[in-house]
Design a protein around this nucleic acid. Structure first.
Lengths: 361, 361
DNA sequence: TTGTAGGCGTTATCAG
DNA sequence: CTGATAACGCCTACAA
């Protein structure tokens, strides 16, 4: 019989008061309780007297709506997923993703959403990046995705299956473009080239990481255009982490007559850090012997006493906030194609590492 | 008719696949799907063939159980809540909570849990700390709570209502003690007093923040005991942020003959940072004129070129990991009272700011 | 071996 | 103005 199921609720378990408890004590129906508690009393035209009575009983019982049931009844769960394609919280204190998360969290809070942090992407985790990892996104009403490397195809699949997704960073696959909030690397990098040119530099080198990822592609593009527009010699040099050493830097400066080096911030910024660490050993002082510019702020400063790098930063927190806004827009209905992609300006960082080009020796 | 209600689900909205969808495609009942997916196939004696078929359809549909419904039905959903009593991600880049979160995330991932980040606590958020904020925790199987200031009473309420909770930091209310994973501030602070004594300091001052919070209480206790054991003069000085200036420091050194100052790391470490910033203006060099020790690492270093502070650090990431372990233990059944509270050792930081006590002038 | 039915606590619709 | 009644998605005791 169902009594075996019912009894524990009504008697055995002291439990939390339910709307039906209030209803009984107030002598109304459970529906009325719900109406009153949700403030629909006007719309439903409920007697003020009734309302007061219900409210009183609710208070006296210390009633609190069960969030689980509430979300179950509404058809959304007010949960926004956050998925990072890489360790969400890198062990070595890299704070690449943290500011994004901060922005996401801030805005989500303001909008009444909680965050579902998917942990599948952690290295050594019990879960893999595999198929089911992405499927779990469905737990949330919609999700913000990020990470330098992401399986676009599958994300496109998700999105076109109607699942609301926003990528933090410009991403697109052949044909389709998924909703994203990115940084305008092209424009910002273009400006960096111009600044270097304005400082008199005629030969500059961009030390970029070898992996193919939109941020690096966009930077290279902007830098090339900027260099071209300013009639500056640009050498794009692809380096793996560990390949940059004092010798290379000396060669650049002495042999190739390069007067400015452009670095980029990535999830590890490994190449950039290598470069900065190699400068002293190379006997090059910044910006006297060599100017240095950064495309995007470097995470995890290598040493404390470094000069602030000139270049531009990423509006990470802002990006996080906008991503949430876009996601919520998506949740609330279709968004025009134009509105689905948003690029934010990168704040310029004056810094102290761009100086006038040294006279040719 | 209900068709008006049913249609949107089955056709209009692509939505998430439900067990009934699987059931239909697999030609079985929804019950069977549930049984199979929960692994009750043995107990229920379900044909292996049926099971395979169900599993295949589930996979092909990318089925994932709705965590809300799962919990509603009284089951676990493999979600761990994280609630911070203060902004989880402070705007000013303070990273007090981040390492905790990192530890929690790591361990949760290893154990197959996702994280539910409750955002109710953000300042300026649309939500308050109010009643419902804490109640949303129920969406998760259990929760990790943190924050220098927390409404213990209500947390005790939650815990004694049977909801699994672990506090990150030692917390107790009159009578009850909630499960926690804390840092052994007492022992670590005691050791700091001893170290100062060993360096010859006979008069030291502890500049602590005015608010009453367990970390500060424990530190004061340990420091007092350590000072007592080492026969050292300890002055505990309660300072509000902004009250520490060069003049105060000069007075301490010149008038009170204090040779060492002890600072504490809090969520803002405001007083500590004020102190550090005031040192140069006070004409005091560290550690020649004055030794400085830190009880807990200071978040958000005030200036880049500071010496590493001697004292101890917090094993934040470890604490986060242990909190998850404890929480999972709690989830799996009763934990002995002894096991419900865990204190971790604080790693000693040698640093460069404790020097021999200067000779009395 | 599989399906039926009822319940979890709330919201929403629709008669009365 | 109020109260049945039916979802929401899942789980499980019990029936067939």
């Amino acid at each position: 019989m169902s009594s075996a199921i019912n009894l524990p609720r009504s008697s055995a378990r002291p439990g939390r008061p339910r709307q039906s408890d209030i209803a009984r004590q107030a002598g109304v129906s459970q529906t009325t309780v719900s109406l009153v508690l949700r403030g629909h009393t006007r719309a439903a035209g409920i007697a003020t007297e009734t309302e007061d009575r219900v409210r009183a009983v609710a208070r006296s019982l210390g009633y609190i709506a069960d969030p689980v049931a509430t979300r179950m009844a509404g058809q959304r769960n007010s949960l926004l997923g956050v998925y990072t394609f890489s360790a969400t919280f890198p062990l070595d204190g890299q704070d690449t993703y943290y500011p994004f998360l901060a922005g996401v969290e801030e805005r989500a809070a303001e909008c009444g959403y909680d965050l579902l942090l998917f942990t599948g992407s952690s290295p050594g985790g019990g879960r893999s990046h595999g198929a089911d990892a992405l499927d779990r996104l469905r737990l949330a009403d919609g999700s913000v995705l990020m990470g330098r490397h992401a399986p676009i195809r599958r994300i496109v699949g998700l999105a076109s299956a109607g699942y609301p997704v926003v990528f933090l960073g410009r991403r697109s696959a052949a044909g389709t473009t998924i909703p994203y909030v990115g940084a305008d690397y092209v424009t910002a990098s273009h400006a960096v080239a111009q600044r270097l040119a304005a400082a008199g530099h005629r030969r500059i080198t961009y030390l970029r990481e070898p992996d193919v990822a939109p941020p690096s592609e966009d930077r290279e593009l902007g830098l090339r255009q900027g260099a071209h527009d300013a009639a500056v010699d640009l050498d794009v040099r692809v380096c793996s982490p560990g390949q940059v050493d004092p010798t290379l830097l000396q060669h650049l400066r002495r042999r190739d007559r390069v007067t400015a080096v452009v670095l980029e911030g990535t999830d590890t910024s490994a190449v950039a850090h290598d470069t900065l660490r190699s400068l002293p050993a190379a006997g090059l002082s910044v910006p006297d012997d060599l100017s240095v510019a950064a495309l995007g702020d470097l995470t995890a400063p290598p040493s404390p006493q470094l000069l602030e790098l000139s270049g531009f930063a990423l509006p990470r927190t802002q990006m996080g906030r906008h991503a949430v806004d876009l996601l919520i827009d998506l949740l609330n209905g279709p968004v025009s194609p134009d509105g689905r992609q948003r690029l934010l300006d990168c704040p310029t960082v004056d810094g102290a590492t761009i100086g006038p080009a040294p006279a040719q020796r």
